[in-house]
Nucleic acid binder design. Sequence first.
DNA 1: AAGGCCATGTAACAAGTTACATGATTAA
DNA 2: TTAATCATGTAACTTGTTACATGGCCTT
Lengths: 151, 151
Amino acid sequence: MTGGELVSAAKDRFGAFWSVTRSQVYRELPGLASAGYVRPGKLGPRAAQPYAITAAGKRAFRSWLAEPAGSDHARNPLILRLGFGAHHASGQLQQLVEEARVQHQAALASHRTRAAELRKNNADPYLVATAEFGVAYARALLRWLESVPTG
Amino acid sequence: MTGGELVSAAKDRFGAFWSVTRSQVYRELPGLASAGYVRPGKLGPRAAQPYAITAAGKRAFRSWLAEPAGSDHARNPLILRLGFGAHHASGQLQQLVEEARVQHQAALASHRTRAAELRKNNADPYLVATAEFGVAYARALLRWLESVPTG
DNA sequence: AAGGCCATGTAACAAGTTACATGATTAA
DNA sequence: TTAATCATGTAACTTGTTACATGGCCTT
């Protein structure tokens, strides 16, 4: 695959849970190639450089999969602002909460339809589970938002 | 406050939701000073450099608080691995899930006690809300984990 | 075939992390 | 008083983001 193809594949699989930019991917590919994990192929149109994974690459991938996952790392700008609590002007917080509500309601809908799609196509059940995580998170967040004091 | 004091204050307020390293803080402080947002004071023991916020700094902080929060940015290594679904060896995934369960059960407990503490001390209700978010998230995640196929 | 558009890749920058050096404080 | 410990700050590196240049493609 080329860098661009990798980016869109990644976005499709877990874009909502783990973002990746093209620059990151393009930066890594030459390094992976010189480490022997991928092998460059013939240039395509627009000077697109495809790579193929090697046996060593597959081994490295599998051993990465087996590593302990480590703790997750939330970066929620709304929570950050809420942490400053009483410094807010009166109407402000209400607006922040409202924006978050809209945002996560959209996310809820999109994860729901994605989960349904995947189930309909008998997709890999683990992949379905990631979409279900999206649903669960959005639902929890929306419910929690109801309880946030907006006075 | 000195860099170290700022770091520990930040860790205390929202360490679970927005991590900050000392290096980041120490790097920013001179910049903030030359921008006029903080003013350096007399050096303390261990060459500790305290800073005081200026009026301009307070204004900048408040206008940052009022900015729209933007979308949140989850980085959950378990979800990432789940996204690769069927590539897992059989027992592996079960182990990942188990580790996550332990981790988030601990998080649930710590957010619960923190929320209770804060309520007991009549702390800022917004701050309480952040702890409640921690509880809600951990609960949702644990429930979701039950449904993840581990076969 | 000319112009706008989109995909590919690069480069400069910002944010985050890890590892280190140094100077007080504490405890044996 | 010496050794261990801990807090302060720095430096090098990695990861993530934004902005840019270029070249096929597609429409008219």
